[in-house]
Design a protein around this nucleic acid. Structure first.
Length: 325
DNA sequence: CTAGGGTTAG
């Protein structure tokens, strides 16, 4: 019998699993049943179908994903690097960073490291979540290169998020400068800048945040609606309304249409400064850009009115909301 | 088949 002979049953099952996975048509229960079925007849060709099933189960219940992996390990199906990637993610999300490290140990032993960039990302994210970003930085800057695994922008962006979460946005700024000056393949992108600008604003550094936003534009990195809303919201919370308006203007210049979140942030900011004329101006501007207030916008408005002895006006808005549905 | 950022209130 040819070694490349794959039993028909197995092949049909594998093909069926992959097709259903790509159609988004496998729930956790289905995946468990299919796994039981497949594992009976599984061979080396089954690993991709197994990866699909592990992904489904693991994203719903990481601990169950780990136990399925252990069942795979007892068969004659050698896991791929990707299988280990799914495993690392399951371990980390199950709160078992120790097992995540152990799984990476297997990846290293099996010589998968050069292609294990995503596996490292899962681990880095979990390490940063434990506020051990310095350790994550050591992995990115020293350990990964030692294993010929070249860190990419994802690796760095995980570090940036970790630094900002630890209120170390100054170090994040320095790292951005190093990446820009290096001019290599790993330049800061929209996620990098958005993350660090957000971190600076959460530390109250309006001027630095605004400077970094300008730097981002100068570097030719385009913001998106999500980026802008984050910046505008942060600036409004710090009562830097002039800066928030400048960012709004930059949005309009770049044909990024403000949405209800953008305007609601501005309205909240102006109310908190007691600048009702500005609030009125924003309310008038919204429909001109095709944006309607939502329940949050009205709640902010009613909150302000009630706290300033204008309950009758608030009541009118409340009633109008009902008639607006 | 596995990876990164964010937003409006109370």
């Amino acid at each position: 019998m040819s070694r490349r002979f794959v039993p028909v049953d197995r092949r049909i099952l594998e093909r069926n699993i992959k097709a259903r996975y790509h159609a988004g048509d496998i729930g956790t229960e289905d995946a468990l049943n299919l796994f039981d079925e497949l594992i009976q007849v599984a061979g080396p060709s089954s690993v991709r179908a197994i990866n699909c099933l592990l992904t489904v189960v693991g994203s719903d219940c990481p601990a169950l994903g780990v136990s399925l992996f252990n069942r795979v390990a007892r068969t004659k199906v050698p896991p791929h690097n990707v299988t280990y990637g799914i495993l690392v993610d399951c371990c980390c999300r199950a709160g078992r960073l120790d097992l995540g490290h152990a799984a990476m140990g297997h990846v290293i032993k099996l010589g998968f490291t050069a292609e294990a960039i995503v596996n490292f990302s899962h681990l880095l994210k979990a390490i940063c979540a434990e506020k051990k970003t310095s350790y994550a930085m050591d992995i990115v800057l020293r350990i990964m290169p030692e294993f010929n695994c070249v860190p990419n922008i994802f690796s760095y962006n995980i570090l940036f998020k970790g630094l900002c979460n630890e209120k170390r946005s100054q170090e994040a700024l320095e790292l951005i400068q190093i990446m820009v000056e290096d001019g290599g393949c790993c330049r800061p992108d929209v996620v990098t800048y958005s993350t660090v600008i957000d971190g600076l604003l959460k530390e109250g550094e309006v001027d630095q945040a605004y400077r970094l936003f300008s730097e981002m534009l100068r570097q030719g990195v385009s913001p998106n609606i999500v980026t802008c809303n984050s910046i505008i919201s942060g600036m409004c919370k710090l009562h830097a309304m002039d800066k928030a308006e400048e960012v709004l203007q930059q949005m309009l210049d770049r044909r990024i249409l403000p949405d209800v979140t953008t305007y609601t942030s501005l309205i909240h900011g102006y109310y908190s400064l007691g600048q009702c004329e500005e609030v009125d101006r924003v309310f008038k501007e919204m429909p001109r850009n095709g944006v309607q207030p939502n329940i949050i916008t009205y709640s902010i408005q009613m909150d302000y009115l009630c706290k300033n002895g204008r309950c009758t006006e608030a009541r009118k808005i409340f009633d109008s909301m009902i008639s607006l549905g």
